[in-house]
C-alpha cells in the first residue's frame, strides 16, 4: 500500500499534466483578409509555394441574373466586355480588377470588385477550363455595397470530410460570419482558400483615367462558352 504523501504527490502531478494538455495552443494564421492590404495574402501564398507561379487558373464570374463582366488586359483603356457568366484565366498570386455592369435589377450600377487569387485547382489533364473557380455575386451582397459598405468573401475548396451535409443547389453555399472572424482562417478550417473577393462602391475617377485603380496583372480571356 502506498504511503499517503506519495499518493498526494501523484495527484498533484496528474493535475499539472492535465493543465498542460488543456492549454494546448491553437493554430496560427498570419494573414487576415479583412485587415491586410489587397494582394498581400496572394503574394505570401506565391512566395511560400513558387511552383504555382505562371499557372492561369480559370475563374468564372456570375451575377444574380444577367449582366456584363469587363476584364482589363494591361490597360484601363481597353476593357474586354463579356456576357455573364464570364470566364478568364487568372495567374495565381495576382490581383485582378473587373467591372460589373448591365445588371437588369440595378440599372446604371457599376461595380469594380477585385479578385485576389491565392491558390489553384488540380483538374485532370486537359480539363482545366471545365473546372473554374466559381465566384458568384449575390443580390444581398450588391445591396450591401450600394449602402456604402464593403463585402469581403473568401472562396474555398471544400474539404470532403467537412463538406456541408446537403445537396448544393443552383447557388454556391455562402456562410455569413461575424466581422471579427478571420475569413482566411475560417476558410482554411473548412477547406483550402482559393480566392479573396472584395466588393465596394468605389468607381474610377473620370478625371484621372490613369490612376492606380486598375490591375495590370496578366490575364487570359476565355472564349465565350
Amino acid at each position: 500500500m502506498l504511503p499517503k504523501q506519495t499518493l498526494s504527490a501523484m495527484i498533484a502531478i496528474i493535475g499539472v499534466l492535465f493543465c498542460s494538455w488543456a492549454g494546448a495552443e491553437d493554430r496560427h494564421f498570419l494573414m487576415n483578409a479583412q485587415t491586410m492590404p489587397t494582394g498581400e495574402a496572394a503574394r505570401w501564398s506565391l512566395m511560400t509555394n513558387p511552383q504555382k507561379y505562371g499557372y492561369f487558373q480559370p475563374v468564372e464570374i456570375s451575377l444574380p441574373s444577367a449582366g456584363h463582366v469587363s476584364f482589363y488586359q494591361g490597360s484601363p483603356q481597353s476593357p474586354v466586355l463579356t456576357q455573364a457568366p464570364s470566364q478568364a484565366g487568372m495567374m495565381v498570386g495576382h490581383t485582378y480588377r473587373v467591372r460589373i455592369s448591365g445588371m437588369p435589377e440595378y440599372p446604371g450600377v457599376e461595380l469594380y470588385p477585385t479578385i485576389e487569387l491565392l491558390d489553384r485547382l488540380h483538374p485532370p489533364e486537359g480539363e482545366a477550363e471545365n473546372f473554374p473557380i466559381p465566384i458568384e455575386l449575390t443580390r444581398e451582397e450588391i445591396q450591401i455595397v450600394l449602402q456604402e459598405r464593403m463585402v469581403t468573401k473568401v472562396v474555398y475548396l471544400e474539404q470532403p470530410e467537412f463538406a456541408v451535409p446537403f445537396e448544393q443547389g443552383a447557388q454556391i453555399h455562402v456562410e455569413d460570419l461575424p466581422v471579427k472572424t478571420n475569413l482566411i482562417q475560417a476558410a482554411d478550417e473548412r477547406g483550402r482558400p482559393m480566392a479573396i473577393v472584395r466588393i465596394g462602391g468605389r468607381i474610377p475617377d473620370p478625371m484621372s483615367p490613369n490612376d492606380e485603380f486598375y490591375s495590370r496583372s496578366p490575364i487570359k480571356i476565355s472564349p465565350a462558352r
Binding site: M36, P37, T38, G39, E40, A42, R43, L46, M47, P50, Q51, K52, Y53, G54, Y55, M91, G93, H94, T95, T114, R202, I203, D205, S208, D211, E212, S215, S217, P218
Partner: peptide
Amino acid sequence: MGAMGAAPGGAPFVCPPGTGGAVVTTSQ
C-alpha cells in the same frame, strides 16, 4: 519549377506586386 509551374515564356519567377498599401495614393 516543374512543367505545371513554369513561367510563361521561361521568365524567372518574380514576386508580384501587391496592389494595396504601396500603390493606392488617392482616397475617393
